[in-house]
């Protein structure tokens, strides 16, 4: 996967995070985002967002970053 996918994945995960900020604490929100990705994202998408985080993940917002970090555990 290249740029078209990665740029859309960054936008998607940040958007999911923005819409889950108010479900509870930051941990609750990150859990919700991680759960969403687990349930709905395809394997290559998960792999690519993980790789992006490993490379720094600069454009991920805080909740998104925490969620993707959780996915790697």
């Amino acid at each position: 996967m290249g740029n078209a996918t990665l740029s859309s994945l960054i936008k998607m995960v940040n958007q999911i995070a923005d819409n889950n900020v108010h479900v509870g604490t930051a941990d609750d929100a990150a859990n919700a985002v991680a759960s969403h990705i687990t349930r709905f994202w395809a394997r290559p998408m998960k792999q690519q967002i993980n790789e992006y985080l490993n490379e720094g993940g600069e454009e991920l917002n805080d909740i998104a970053r925490q969620a993707v970090t959780q996915l790697q555990k």
């Binding site: 996967m1 078209a4 996918t5 859309s8 395809a42």
Partner: peptide, 20 residues
């Protein structure tokens, strides 16, 4: 059967542009 979700339409489009 695969136990992971697949690509949605917009994901397919992006992946097509990326060549995968």
């Amino acid at each position: 059967l695969d136990n992971e979700p697949g690509l949605r339409i917009p994901n397919m489009f992006n992946s097509a542009i990326d060549g995968t």
